[in-house]
Design a binder for these strands. Structure first.
Length: 601
RNA sequence: GGGGGCGUAGCUCAGUUGGUUAGAGCGCUAGCCUGUCACGCUAGAGGUCGCGGGUUCGAGCCCCGUCGCUCCCGCCA
């Protein structure tokens, strides 16, 4: 017989009754009835009930066992007595009557119980991650993560993608996030950087003629964490394709993402065909470029109803500001003064002056608007508003006014809050969309100049000849240029962003010139890339969905830590391994590094 | 860098208006219990109320500072 086990703790069934077996695992739960003693023995595969009584040679040992001790037990499989089956366990028809117990790994008193689903503080969970990972929820999440990654790999390969490994020790890239630096021993004063993403490598792979690249790629960014943004490191499904348009990328990626979600959604519906929403439309309808489409609320511009109206606050905004607008946020079934006032208080808590509203109620068969806004607006305009928004008895509508540039974020937050409060969001579905047509540039009011809006290396959506002919004075035209850039958004979570890359050095130089970058600067910062593009670069593009976020959504988790095996805390510390840690004097000498601690103040 | 929340037993939490010796559940220790599966029952151990200072006759509670954790903003092409 094997030294540790003949079966796993999830294996035994009625068919095994009578067999002599050997199991190893953790003492999940022990119930000592004096004369009879039960041990729920747990391993990766499941739980099996082990029984001892005073007739058993192992009884004395069994009485000394404690929670989470690792033991080997030998015994005989037998049917549980009539009426004591446990239908909640796959092994619940049988139990192992123990003959011998060997303690393989005793456990001291636990800082955090494994049994049950009690919540525990993050620092304790992280310091004792190996205990937390024994618990069902995390254990299941981590397994699911692996299965999801397997599925992604298989689907990518089926589409003709090939997996590459790109360097981890590489050069710092001046764009984007803060880099993690690694000092060089051989080159005093010089540093490697960990890649923020394999962006340049994957483009070079296309220039190298490989056509379809993918990688489950580690990415490193020294930026502050969020619940949906791991500190330090995370994984992307990084992919790139040659000779493609935006449609080709969508056609390649969408089935992979949809397929993976359908496979792991446990029956929850997944968007059949991802709608494409232009950036501008997303801002206007949802107040964000990562809309949660499970929320049915669609905002609308109702400026014309308020222009010149008796509701002076809004009328004045429209009068004095050319860009001024009033947006409406419909709130189906939100038509009570209590709810509207609550939202108004919430808005004030968010630092807003308030959240104007009208709520509609039936009065002798006629639906009328109520509240201060309605009173000042007048019955006719209120009715026009109600008709435009399709609202009815028991509904409400909220308003934000000013310059959209300034208020759209708050409007989006209000839309989300209202949807949440009114229970309009069906949590048990996955609503996807593509966000497309991102603006290439934006106006920097503070510095009075044109800036890149998102990714400077995306291809502008303009024929090259037309783009190259642009004059710096064509400000309005320049600001209207859209980049061939796109995001996948699911349930309000930005899953990935990608682009058709700018593969033409002349167009890239022009693009940077428009944003005020001297060609020498471009040469200095991105000379290598520019050079490669000048020696025969195919048109190419790609995208990089975040693996951790995909897993988080599919596991129904709100925090990435719940789907990462050994995560760091918010301050980018690994409490279990004790990272980051000071280096020894010898290490620092070899690296030509002297530590200068931050001074007081 | 900024803002909010939290910090009481190993863990989860309660703790009234500032008032006697700071409580409960889980866990731990000991005892009882032959069919439980969150087993049950009895007893016990376990506390610098994050830390420092202040107000007060008296502080877990009020005030100031500080530290830790967390969520958010900045940041993240």
């Amino acid at each position: 017989m094997h030294a540790y086990r003949s079966h796993t703790c999830g294996a035994l069934r009625a068919a095994d009754i009578g067999a002599e077996v050997r199991l190893s695992g953790w003492c999940h739960r022990i119930r000592d009835h004096g004369g009879v003693l039960f041990i729920d023995l747990r391993d990766h595969y499941g739980i099996t009930q082990v029984v001892a009584d005073p007739d058993s040679a192992a009884f004395k040992t069994a009485e000394t066992l404690r929670a989470e001790w690792v033991v080997r037990v030998d015994g005989k499989v037998r049917r549980r007595p009539e009426g004591t089956d446990n239908p909640d366990l796959p092994t619940g028809a049988v139990e192992v009557y123990v003959r011998e117990i060997e303690v393989l790994g005793p456990a001291a008193e636990l800082p955090m119980p494994v049994f049950g689903d009690q919540e525990y503080p993050e620092d304790i969970r992280l310091k004792y991650r190996f205990l937390d990972l024994r618990r069902e929820r995390l254990h299941r999440n981590i397994i699911k993560r692996g299965q999801i990654i397997d599925s992604i790999r298989r689907r990518m390969k089926e589409q003709g993608f090939f997996e590459f490994q790109t360097p981890i020790l590489t050069a710092s890239s001046p764009e984007g996030a803060r880099d993690y630096l690694v000092p060089s021993r051989l080159h005093p004063g010089k540093f490697y950087a960990l890649p923020q993403a394999p962006q340049q490598f994957k483009q070079l792979i296309m220039v190298s003629g490989f056509d379809r690249y993918f990688q489950i790629a580690p990415c490193f960014r020294d930026e502050d964490a969020r619940a949906d943004r791991s500190p330090g490191e995370f994984y992307q499904l990084d992919l790139e394709m040659s000779f493609v348009t935006q449609d080709d990328v969508f056609a390649a990626v969408e089935p992979v993402i949809r397929g993976v979600f359908e496979e792991f959604a446990d029956g929850r519906p997944v968007t059949a065909k991802f709608p494409r929403i232009p950036y501008k439309e997303a801002i206007e309808k949802y107040g964000t470029d990562k809309p949660d489409l499970r929320n049915p609320i669609v905002m609308a511009d109702v400026s014309e109803i308020f222009r010149g109206s008796g509701f002076k606050i809004f009328a004045r905004i429209l009068e004095t500001s050319a860009k001024g607008a009033v947006w409406a946020i419909p709130a189906p079934r939100g038509g009570s003064r209590a709810f509207c006032d609550r939202m108004n208080s919430w808005a004030q808590g968010e630092g807003q002056p308030g959240l104007g509203y009208i709520f509609f109620a039936a009065d002798s068969g006629v639906i009328v608007g109520r509240g201060p806004v309605a009173n000042n607006l007048g019955a006719q305009r209120t009715e026009a508003l109600r008709a435009q928004l399709g609202l009815s008895d028991g509904d409400a509508v909220f308003f934000v006014a000013g310059e959209p540039q300034a208020f759209f974020k708050f409007a989006g937050a209000a839309r989300a809050k209202i949807g949440e409060e009114l229970g309009l969001i069906d949590k048990d579905r996955f609503e996807f969309c593509w966000i497309v047509d991102f603006p290439m540039y934006e106006w920097n009011e503070e510095e009075k100049k044109i800036d890149f809006s998102h990714n400077p290396f995306s291809m502008p959506n303009l024929p090259p000849s037309e783009f190259l002919a642009l004059d710096a004075g064509d400000r309005d035209k320049i600001l209207s240029i859209r980049a061939i850039q796109y995001d996948i958004v699911c349930n309000g979570v930005e899953l990935s962003s990608g682009a058709i890359r700018n593969h033409r050095p002349d167009v890239m130089k022009k693009a940077f010139a428009i944003a005020g970058y001297d060609e020498a600067v471009l040469e200095q910062k991105f000379g290598g890339m520019l050079h490669a593009l000048s020696l025969g670069a195919p048109p190419h593009g790609g995208i990089a969905p975040g693996i951790d976020r995909i897993v988080m959504l599919l596991c129904g988790e709100e925090n990435l830590r719940e789907v990462v095996l050994f995560p760091m805390n918010q301050r980018a510390e690994d409490l279990m391994m004790g990272a980051p840690a000071e280096a020894t004097a010898k290490q620092l000498r070899e690296l030509h590094i002297r530590v200068v601690p931050p001074g007081p103040g």
